[in-house]
Computed example of a mutant assay.
Amino acid sequence: MATAVETLSKLERRMTLTFPLADVQAEVEKRLKVRARTAKAPGFRPGKVPMKMVAAQFGYQVETEVLNDKVGRAFNDAAVENNLRVAGFPSIEPKTSEEAGEGQLAFNATFEVYPEVVIGDLSGSEVEKTTASVSDAEIDKTIDILRKQRVHYHVKGEQGAHGDGGADQSAQNGD
């Protein structure tokens, strides 16, 4: 597997991933054989479906899975090998067969990397500490606001979560 990394802008990179077509085809065949063990088709017992029918039914799906796995693994390996800190997911496009070469698959992965951050000397910097004081009047005001926000209304004379409302249902001073 060959990789080449080129810089497109300050944070954007393009990586060319190539690997042999024979590896992909071998993996597809291996996965199709595994899938054939449990494949079901009308007129055949489970697991006895001919390989041609399994390939026709599941071939595209298995090939896509294999390509996704191979390209993803190749991209991650190349990113680690080149010490790249990838930000987000890459945009991957296949290259044409003329660009890739005979018996090769090639893909372009365009992605962004995290910027290199260098922290300067902070020994000469000053930090200003702020303090805040809270008075008793501000505390009382906040408690009054909270009481108004969390007020409970109960029917007079009924038992509730905060005690009974009293046996007398007539209006009294302070109700």
Rank of each mutant, 00 (worst) to 15 (best):
T3G: 06
A4Q: 14
V5E: 02
E6R: 14
T7W: 03
E12M: 07
E12C: 04
R14V: 15
L17F: 10
F19D: 06
L21A: 15
L21I: 06
A22G: 10
D23Q: 15
K30E: 15
K30Q: 15
L32H: 03
K33H: 12
P46S: 07
P46L: 11
G47Y: 10
G47C: 07
P50D: 06
M53S: 06
A56C: 01
G59L: 07
Q61R: 13
E65R: 07
K70Y: 13
V71K: 03
V71M: 05
A74C: 05
A78T: 06
E81I: 04
N82E: 14
A87Y: 13
F89A: 15
E98V: 11
G101A: 07
G101M: 03
Q104P: 00
L105N: 07
A109M: 08
E112P: 01
V113N: 00
V127E: 09
E128L: 12
T130P: 00
A132C: 01
S133F: 09
D136E: 10
D136G: 01
I143M: 09
I145G: 02
R147C: 02
R150M: 13
H152D: 09
Y153A: 13
V155N: 06
K156S: 06
G157M: 08
H162Q: 11
D164S: 14
G166Q: 01
A167Q: 13
Q169F: 04
S170V: 04
G174V: 04
D175R: 01
